[in-house]
Simulated assay, not measured.
Amino acid sequence: MILPIIGYGDAILKKEGEEIDKDYKDLDLLIENMFETMYEASGVGLAAPQINKSIRLFIVDASPFAEVEEGEEPDPMAEGLDGFKKIFINPIIEEESGEEWAFAEGCLSIPKIREDVFRKPTIKISYYDENWTFHEETYDGYAARIIQHEYDHVDGILFTDHLSPLKKRMIKKKLINISKGEVDVPYRMKFPLVKRRK
């Protein structure tokens, strides 16, 4: 089932998610719905707070980064991303290392805005998968970037929180318009300042 994605300005996006356990109700169905919702919106990651669940769960499918147009050289940062599809439950980023690099990030909850965000290139993360198997893994390049972005969501952080005060001022009106639903998106969204019809 395709779920509405929560738009910028909703309090749930600023709230730290809670850890869950194996008894979390309908977890398999939730994960299935999250993938369906993410693919419908052409995303590469989706965190539970973005579909109105304040829990520490996010999914990624970085395969689009591995696609190469005819005549183009493969991007070394996208190495190993073909079929890179994962579920992260109760994740903890244990370590971030390397020299920060900029990449124009976007977000399904903040459509039509992309801004450079600086992040460290390598992370070590521990998490449980959908079978409750524990993992501790190291990622770099785009994989690390996508994971860091989604991990921020379960900590109540948005990519816009990483921007300079000047950048934030420059996009303030666009952010307010998103909150009001004054943005054209090709997927279902729920906007905090749109009054529901009775």
Rank of each mutant, 00 (worst) to 15 (best):
G7E: 02
M189N: 02
N90G: 03
K198N: 11
G181T: 13
E16W: 10
D184Y: 11
K198D: 07
N90L: 02
I157E: 02
E137G: 05
N131S: 13
L163W: 05
I31W: 04
S179E: 07
K22W: 10
I110Q: 00
E70G: 08
D184P: 00
K22S: 11
H153S: 03
E137C: 11
A41W: 11
K25I: 12
L108M: 13
N33F: 05
I51P: 00
A143K: 03
E150A: 10
I59S: 00
F58P: 08
N90I: 02
D184S: 08
E70V: 13
R114W: 15
I92A: 07
K173Y: 14
Y151T: 07
F103R: 14
I12Y: 12
D23A: 12
K190M: 09
W132L: 08
P49E: 00
G181S: 06
A11S: 14
I113T: 06
K120G: 03
M34P: 03
K124W: 13
I113Y: 03
S164E: 12
D129Y: 01
K25Y: 04
P186R: 09
I12M: 07
G141Y: 02
R119W: 14
A143C: 09
P91D: 02
L13C: 08
V154R: 00
T37Y: 07
D152V: 11
L108H: 04
A47M: 04
N33H: 15
E67A: 10
E94Y: 08
M34R: 05
I92C: 10
K180Y: 13
R196H: 12
K190Q: 11
S109C: 13
V68M: 12
D61G: 12
G9N: 06
F134H: 14
K22N: 05
S54E: 12
D161S: 14
M1P: 09
P91A: 02
L29S: 06
G181A: 09
G141F: 00
I171G: 00
E130G: 08
K86F: 06
Y8H: 13
G156R: 04
F35D: 01
A102T: 11
I157P: 01
I123Y: 02
G83C: 08
S109N: 04
S42D: 11
K174H: 13
L175C: 05
N90S: 03
P64M: 10
A104V: 12
R196F: 14
S109A: 07
Y127K: 05
L158K: 04
S179A: 13
I2Q: 07
I20G: 01
R169Y: 14
E73A: 13
I31M: 06
G45P: 15
Y187P: 00
I178H: 02
